[in-house]
Design a binder for these strands. Structure first.
Length: 480
DNA sequence: GTAGGGTTAG
């Protein structure tokens, strides 16, 4: 069972009771009571032990279901694994000439957000207008979330700016839209506007902003938000605690991540995973593995993210056998089907340990087609361990990558380097010329780090900054 | 005489 979350296990008897009650309603002639049917549908569609298919069947067999009956089923589909069904049910609802209510639209927008269905969402926005609920605050919040998820921040902003009544949720939604679309400055401006308008940020606001700090590596801001949390006396619940652990870990402040982690009363699978990944990504493999053990002792079931962290720890610690064992356990003991990223992580485990042939074999035996990042993981291992000659793993990988993405600039650079390494200067120059003719230019990789309130941006290959010498010296002192 | 809605986690 997930830590800190009350989970009602699917129980046959509960569902059986529900069927019995439904049968009773029918036999005693109460099935014409729209409210009763709507309640049956609510329980059946939305509660953990329910049966959405059954709810849908009941709904479609009803002669004249109330709008609330439709809403319950649409809502359940909008958060299910098949959100498209929410739209299908809505179409049926319209065919039955039932007028949607202000409660129908937030669920439809949620479905469109998960589907990234911009066109459909916009059509539904027109419906909301037609049915006179477009100024409802829930409908508008739903619209902001929909546009934000579909990367249409300007539209999200337009909805937000046009709102006459806003709630904290409206502010949180627009801040989320900015953060998710990497508009961090705007998100901070909105945060300050929010308080200017007299809205108290809640723990969700803080979670959103902390995720922005984590992404930016902005430790000062993250700390300041932590102070705000304490100052406001906000309860550090599971989500907020996890966001703090994640922020500190991503900003490299593992000590503070651990401190927050240890003080949390409730931890769920995300909390443990954030801590494991934090240690793993910063090379503290043993710490990461210890936390993983702790997680198991506390009976928290690992999920796919947890295993990414554990595999990452194994690759940093060059623990090949442990890596294989973890990969095997993930599927066979925990029933988690490996995703592309897990295969990539396993390739990294093998590659970093210099087992290039084995990694190559592993990729060729994958049950799904390896994507370019998986090949690139092996390539980066090759750049450390491989000796380039015409039969090397590195050479095979490069050829494969070029077949997969012939127009990717990075691959062309790579091929040019490959020719250069084996001394085929003419061919190397040819590839460079092709790139020049096609006006292809490789974007430099960039990263940023915050020190003393200032954000420093670094571009790959740019050694011209004043501080470079000091950084290289500091790395050399640490044996890199 | 009848209830339900949103945001967050690699």
């Amino acid at each position: 069972m997930e830590y800190g979350k009350k989970v009602t296990k699917p129980s046959c008897s509960s569902l059986k009771h529900l069927y019995q009650i439904h049968a009773h309603i029918i036999t005693s002639g109460f099935h014409k009571d729209g409210f009763l049917i709507s309640e049956i549908l609510r329980v059946c569609a939305l509660l953990p032990f329910g049966n959405l298919n059954y709810a849908r069947l009941v709904l479609f067999r009803e002669l004249n279901p109330k709008a609330s009956s439709w809403n319950h089923v649409i809502r359940a589909y909008s958060k299910s694994k098949s959100p498209r069904e929410a739209l299908v049910v809505y179409v049926e609802m319209r065919k039955s000439r039932i007028t949607p209510s202000e409660l129908t639209f937030p669920f439809l927008f949620k479905a469109c957000a998960s589907l990234l269905a911009v066109k459909e969402g916009k059509q539904i926005q027109v419906h909301a207008l037609k049915f006179g609920v477009s100024s409802n605050v829930y409908v508008q919040n739903g619209l902001i979330n929909f546009y934000g998820s579909c990367r249409e921040v300007n539209d999200a902003r337009r909805v937000f700016d046009g709102m006459l009544i806003r709630t904290v949720v409206s502010w949180n939604s627009i801040v989320t839209a900015c953060v998710e679309n990497s508009m961090f400055d705007d998100s901070l401006l909105l945060f300050s506007d929010m308080r200017g308008f007299g809205f108290e940020p809640d723990s969700t606001t803080m979670v959103i902003l902390l995720s922005a700090c984590a992404e930016l590596g902005n430790l000062s801001l993250g700390r300041w938000i932590h102070c705000q949390v304490i100052e406001k006396g906000l309860l550090i619940n599971c989500q907020l605690g996890t966001a703090l652990v994640d922020m500190y870990a991503k900003c490299g402040a593992l000590y503070y991540a651990r401190l927050v982690f240890d003080r949390m009363i409730e931890r769920n699978v995300w909390t443990w995973s954030a801590m494991i990944l934090g240690f793993a990504q910063h090379g503290l493999a043993q710490e990461a593995l210890k936390v993983f053990e702790g997680m198991k002792i506390n009976n928290v079931r690992p999920n796919y993210v947890t295993f990414l962290g554990v595999l990452c720890a194994c690759s940093h610690a060059r623990m090949v056998d442990e890596g294989y064992r973890v990969f095997h356990d993930m599927t066979h003991s925990y029933g988690i089907k490996p995703m592309m990223t897990h295969y990539g992580a396993m390739v990294d485990v093998l590659g970093r340990s210099g087992k290039l042939e084995e990694a190559y074999d592993f990729i060729t035996r994958m049950p799904i087609d390896p994507d370019p990042p998986v090949w690139r993981t092996l390539l980066s291992a090759c750049s450390i361990h491989d000796v380039t000659d015409s039969t090397s793993v590195g050479m095979k990988v490069r050829k494969r990558l070029l077949e997969l993405e012939p127009e990717r600039c990075g691959n062309l650079v790579m091929v040019a380097n490959m020719y250069a390494e084996v001394g085929s200067w003419e061919e190397a120059a040819n590839v460079r010329k092709v790139m020049k003719d096609l006006k292809l230019k490789k974007m430099a990789g960039e990263s940023c780090v915050e020190v003393g309130g200032l954000i420093h941006k670094f571009f790959s290959g740019d050694d011209t900054r004043d501080c470079c010498e000091g950084i290289y010296q500091s790395l050399a002192d640490r044996g890199y």
